[in-house]
Structure formats: structure tokens, C-alpha cells
Amino acid sequence: MPAPAPPPVTTRNAVVFLAVIAGGAAMYWMQDILTPLALAVFLAVMVDSFARVLTMRVPGFPRTMALPAAVVISILLFGVSFWVVIDNGRGFFDQMKDYAPHLNGIIAKIAHAIGIQIAPTIDSLINQLNPKAFIGQAAQSFGNFASSAVLVLIYLGFIIASRRGFARKIVSLFPHHPERERNMKLFQSIRDGVEQYLWIQTVTGLMIAVAAWVVMMLVRLDNAFFWAFLIFLAAYIPILGGAIGCFLPPLFALVQFPDSFWPAIILFAALQAIFFIVGNVILPRMQGDSLNMDPTVVLLSLAVWGALWGVPGMFLSTPLTVAVMLILAQFEGSRWIAILLSEDGDPQGERMLSGKGHGPAPDEPAKTPSSGKKHP
């Protein structure tokens, strides 16, 4: 009986396209379930990275203590970040009360410039916004955030606890060694992509935050460390974080220095230059060399994952797209999508490996000697 003919390329691509749409709809519908799990997996990869760094970079560090130490370090980092935001945020909002006369002066200037004779005050604007109507929404949002954070920690605990059985599950799922080796390579590529993303965003975020802190100290902007720390945290959201850090400090410079526009202008120009150099020179080069992702795809993935999962989707947009690109590259019907997502058209790095002489590409069978003997 002859083998059935493969489906036409058009039919295959149409099926892949419909499958992508159906998968996106399922992710949007199940976002309350999938978002905490995705964040927990991301944190688990981060903890595992800390553990491997401790074993590789710290001489004589016991391997059995690497994972507990990484968990403690991660908790301390998140705790310190939370404390810095809460402690400095309290002083920041207390200081905003002293800026009320300055805000009234700025509002009066803007009102007179556009032809309004009687300028409103900041108190009247706040009363018109009716803040009591937003208290319930804010409380509900905070409750949802707290419950999501608890759920993420529960998922993280179970993922770390079941980490030891992962190798046995892989052996049971893929009993044949070549198939198991190929899937382990895929998992390691995804893990390395997430680690590279963390490293790139941390390094570039520190560059931007330190340079912004220096500029804000030179113009004597209040709460310079608080603004620099917020800019560092916002840097983990591609593109959007830079926009937030570039516009908010100059706006508050207008409030702090109502008699002169020069501090705000200098701050805005300096931050624009910092974000332009890091975002358009350093970051694309690091992403292209490490993540092998097209810069346009980074922007598109931010919009897509943000529409699907909101702020957590924006935060996870790049590592999720890296994982999707590597998974799609494993199948012939979806490989063309992975090629479009990659920077150099080689999502798995096979061309680089074959060019360096590290052996045949995964799709090429190893050549046997003419004598017919097998390789050892």
C-alpha cells in the first residue's frame, strides 16, 4: 500500500496559522491560570541560574547547598527591592504635599497660556476626579496582586520540590537516546535564552539607572535614588520601561523647579541620550548576539504578550518569544515562523555549529567510514 502523499505547503501553513490563533485565544482565556504558572517557571529558572553560578564561580561551594542558597538570595533580593520601593515611596508621597503650591503655579501658567482666565487648583482637580470611586478598584487590584503573588510562590515551591524527578520524567517520556538528547538540547536552549535575557536586562538596566542617577544628582532632583531604582525595575519591561523612565523624572523636575524649565530640559535631553545609546546601540547588539532575536520581533512580542496577559505578559514577552521560537524550529511545518523570528535566519544556531566544525547539523546524519564500521 503506497504511503499517503504529504499535504501541500499552503495547507500546512494554513493549519499552522490557525493553530497559532487558537493557541493565542486559549492563552487569553486561561490567563488567570497560566500567568502565575509562567511567572513561577521564570523564577524557577532564575533560582536555578543562581545555583549554577554559585557552584561554578565560588570555589569549593557545596553542590547540595547551592539550591537552598539560591532560594535565600532570591528572597533577599525581592525583599530588599520591596523595602526600597515602600520606604522611598512613603517619603516621596509625603514630599508631594509640599509641591502643591508649585503644581498650582504650573497649572495657572498652562491655563493662562490656553486662554483660561480662572485656573483650577490641584485640590479642585483631585475632587473632580472623585478619588473615592477609585479606592474600591485600587483595593481590588491590590487584592488580586497579593493573591497572584501567593499563587506564584506556591507554584514556585512545587516546581523546586519536583525538580529532582525531572530527569526521570525525561527518560520515561523519551526512552530512545537520540530523541532524548534532542529534547534535552531544546530545554537547555530555552533555559539559556531565559538566562541571557535576565543577564541582558540586568546589565542594561544598571547602565541606565546609574547614568540616570548621576544626571539627576547633577540637576539636584529630589529622590534621585528612588527614581533610579524605579528606572532599573522598569527596564525589565522592554521598550515601555524606557519610555516611563524617560518622561516621569523631567515632569517632576518641572514641579520641583517651577521658576526655571532648564533642569527639566537638561534632564529630559540627558535621559533621552542615555536611553537612545543603551536601547539602540548596546541592547540590540547584546540581544542579537545572545538571544538571536530580531529587534522588530522584540517590539511585536511586547504588544502581543501584553495584549494576552497584561503587565506580566510584557515582563515575560522576550523569554516567552525565545521559547516559542526554539519550539517552532523543531517542526518542519512551523520552522518558517522560527526563521522569521530569529535575527540571522538560523534559530537553532546550526549554521554556526556546522561552520565551526563541531560535527554535523542535527538534521544531517553522521557519515560512516568506507569500511562499514560504526563510530564508537
Rank of each mutant, 00 (worst) to 15 (best):
A5K: 10
P6E: 11
P8G: 04
T11M: 07
T11P: 06
R12L: 05
L18R: 05
A19Y: 07
A19T: 08
W29Y: 14
Q31F: 09
L34G: 08
A44H: 11
T55Y: 02
R57C: 09
R57G: 05
V58Y: 14
P59K: 05
V72C: 14
V72D: 12
I73L: 14
S74K: 04
S74Y: 02
I75L: 14
L76W: 03
F78Q: 07
W83V: 00
F93A: 12
M96V: 07
Y99C: 09
P101N: 12
A108N: 10
T121Y: 11
I122H: 13
N127E: 12
N127G: 15
Q128P: 04
K132Q: 12
G136A: 06
A139I: 01
Q140P: 00
V152W: 08
R168V: 06
I170Y: 07
S172K: 07
H177M: 07
R180Q: 14
E181N: 05
R182L: 04
K185W: 07
L186E: 06
I190H: 12
V194E: 00
L198M: 12
T204Y: 02
L206N: 09
A211G: 11
R220C: 10
L221G: 00
L221N: 00
D222E: 12
N223E: 11
A224W: 07
F232I: 01
A235I: 00
P238K: 04
G242L: 04
A243W: 08
L254C: 15
V255S: 15
F261M: 13
W262A: 15
A264V: 03
L267F: 10
Q272R: 09
A273R: 05
V278K: 08
M293E: 14
M293F: 04
V297F: 14
L299M: 11
A303D: 06
L308Q: 00
G313F: 08
F315E: 00
S317T: 02
P319N: 13
P319V: 04
L328Q: 01
Q330D: 02
Q330P: 02
E332N: 09
A338Q: 14
E343C: 05
D346C: 01
P347G: 05
E364H: 10
K367G: 07
